[in-house]
Design a protein around this nucleic acid. Structure first.
Length: 644
DNA sequence: GTAGGGTTAG
């Protein structure tokens, strides 16, 4: 009569069912039913309990009403909870806090703020307490509105509430999520009683500080960890996962030099202390995901795979973390294999995060077709309006050669656009040599009130450079530095050098390098090098090579192109010398690889490759192409390199 | 018998 998934079956099995029946107190059985509705995520059971409460005349029972509101909010129906709330003649703090938190959990922030105001102003609503403030700080942290946060903080002080630990932790987190780490530290310093969560909030705040220069904090990360241990507090799963994310080279990981070493130590800590990587069928797999991520980002994706294989329970997050690990390491075949395996093993199948993770792998191996398949999958699952997925699709389509598909996604599916969406489409136009269009889009982005970041600036500058739009590039560079206070990065400067260089203004390019506001990196000298090679200025070319090899003595590409430079002027003695230096340093150049997709199959080629079954035909066609190019564009060096 | 915080695969 009872199926295994039927909630009544569970309650019938439990002893408490008989105990409740024996007591004949309908409110207790109702509460148990409501708890069950939350546990089994059953909206039907909640509504049935609601109806039962009405039949029994228990709708004004404060504990039952509170539990009803809570269950509706947990089941993503906060307005059903509000109906219960509105019908209450007497509303205590407890009940108000429940609805307040329910609005927050469901992202109805305005409703939260309105309710908070009503509570603050007294009258028919319960008075504010520590619970109210802990909820409000969390909501303001989600909103990222520090001014609202300061007002709520002020109110908590005015109310004379001595900060309890949970509210303090929530306040700390609110400040650091709003980018005010100093204020978060101040709260931490002034807290009368701290627990592990307080330290966790401190560490995660530390991890969020983007441009870490060591001066903002009186303590280094390891000092924090050590002080925590001095207070006899043991790391819990939260501490370990936050620290693991700092072992992956992300923001704030400045003083984690031996990142993987620390990561392994944390892995040992997890094992020694019996922390769960995956605690049950519906349990937390977060620690496992963090470990996979940490190992993959440190180039040890195989160790990540071992962690993955040993996880007792895997949900879509675990599968996605592993797929992402493979994709980031360039192991695209493995990523795709796992993606397929996930679909027949994991009941839920991939979600939007999985699709974003697999897209780079997909487009690398199977080109446009792979991207289209994922896009089709997303449409069928109604995920195609998700912002991150749209951004990834725009990037994939433009990199796979279809600017028109990229534009379609940008214009019709990407309904809410952020800086990344604009950046992806602008880079796409740049990549396809349509600089003018990239500049128009950049202006449109600014008109839409999106603040440019360094990525989009690099995108538009490189588009200008490739299309010879020097004036536009210069105006954009000056404007973002002056009007948007963007500090020029090495990449931005390299774009400027490239822009001057390509147009033949080599002296201007060199002057820019000499006067640029950051230390010129290999990218700037590399840009000057290509430009001087293009315009046949061997003096400038040698200068750029010297700087490049001085800066990157172990980069084999520099030696190869230097060797090619001398080979083009037939100075074989110098060629031999360069090759000898490479041998002495043990440098080898990994051959580049090209690939093309045709009729659903991918064909890849390296230099002098004869392994393809149609190799003879391909080389005949290649010879014809070289001859045709010689006729239309005669540059001896260029043709020489083509024939090598 | 009831409400709160710290991590979260991109």
């Amino acid at each position: 009569m009872f199926g295994g998934n039927n909630p009544f079956y569970k309650i019938a099995k439990s002893q408490s069912f008989h105990a409740i029946a024996a007591e004949f107190d309908p409110s207790i059985s109702l509460l148990k039913l409501l708890e069950l509705s939350i546990e089994t995520q059953s909206l039907k059971l909640s509504s049935q309990s609601h109806a039962r409460a009405q039949r029994l005349g228990l709708t004004q029972h404060s504990i039952i009403a509170q539990k009803l509101i809570f269950s509706y909010c947990q089941l993503r129906r906060p307005f059903d909870g509000q109906l219960v709330f509105d019908s209450l003649l007497f509303k205590n703090t407890h009940i108000c806090n429940t609805l307040l938190s329910g609005y927050g959990k469901n992202q109805f922030f305005q409703e939260s703020l309105d309710l908070f105001r009503k509570m603050r102003d007294g009258s028919a609503f319960g008075v504010v307490d520590d619970f109210t403030f802990s909820v409000m700080f969390k909501i303001v942290g989600d909103l990222g509105e520090v001014l609202v946060g300061k007002m709520v903080h002020g109110r908590s002080v005015k109310n004379g509430l001595v900060l309890d630990t949970v509210a303090g932790n929530s306040l700390m987190s609110m400040y650091s999520r709003c980018g005010c780490f100093d204020d978060s530290m101040k709260v931490f310093d002034e807290m009368p009683l701290r627990n592990v969560s307080s330290w966790n909030a401190l560490i995660s705040g530390y991890a969020k500080v983007k441009s870490w220069d060591g001066s903002f904090c009186r303590l280094g990360l390891w000092d924090i960890v050590r002080e925590m241990q001095h207070e006899d507090l043991k790391f819990d799963a939260f501490t370990v996962s936050t620290l693991l994310s700092l072992c992956s080279g992300g923001a704030g990981s400045g003083d984690f030099r031996d990142k993987c070493g620390h990561g392994r130590e944390l892995h040992c800590y997890i094992i020694r202390n019996g922390l769960d990587l995956s605690s049950g069928p519906d349990g937390d797999v977060h620690l496992g995901c963090c470990l996979i991520d940490m190992y993959s980002k440190n180039g040890k994706v195989d160790v990540g795979r071992r962690v993955f294989d040993r996880m007792k329970w895997k949900n879509v997050c675990a599968w996605t973390a592993m797929i992402n690990g493979y994709a980031q390491c360039g192991k695209f075949e493995d990523a795709l294999f796992l993606f397929r395996e996930m679909q027949w093993r994991d009941g839920d199948g991939p979600n939007k995060v999985s699709l974003v993770a697999i897209l780079p792998a997909c487009s690398s191996i199977s080109g446009l077709m792979g991207g289209k398949q994922i896009h089709g999958f997303a449409v069928r699952r109604e995920l195609n309006h998700d912002l991150s997925l749209c951004n990834a699709l725009i990037d994939t389509y433009s990199k796979c050669g279809s600017l028109s598909y990229a534009t379609q996604v940008f214009e019709h599916e990407c309904t809410r656009k952020d800086a990344i969406s604009w950046s992806s489409i602008i880079c796409g136009y740049g990549l396809h040599g349509q600089g003018q269009q990239a500049v128009i889009l950049f202006d449109k982005m600014l008109q839409n009130g999106i603040k440019p970041d360094t990525t989009v600036v690099v995108g538009v500058l490189s588009a200008c450079s490739k299309s010879g739009l020097i004036n536009d590039g210069l105006i954009i560079y000056d404007s973002v530095v002056t009007n948007y206070k963007i500090k020029p990065t090495v990449e931005m400067c390299a774009c400027m050098v490239d822009m001057f260089g390509r147009s033949g203004q080599l002296d201007k390019a060199l002057d820019f390098i000499k006067s640029m506001p950051v230390e010129p990196g290999p990218s700037s000298w590399g840009a000057l090098l290509s430009a001087s090679a293009l315009h046949g200025n061997s003096e400038m070319q040698e200068l750029a090579y010297k700087s490049l090899i001085m800066m990157e003595p172990d980069n084999s590409s520099n030696y190869i192109s230097l060797s090619n430079l001398y080979a083009s002027s037939k100075r074989w003695d110098v060629v031999a010398e360069v090759r000898q230096v490479m041998r002495k340093r043990g440098l080898r150049k990994l051959p580049g690889c090209s690939w093309i997709s045709m009729n659903g199959a991918s064909h890849s080629f390296v230099v002098a490759d004869k392994s393809h079954p149609c190799s003879n035909l391909i080389y005949v066609m290649l010879d014809e192409l070289v001859s045709a190019m010689k006729l239309t564009y005669y540059n001896p060096d260029f043709v020489y390199l083509m024939e090598v």
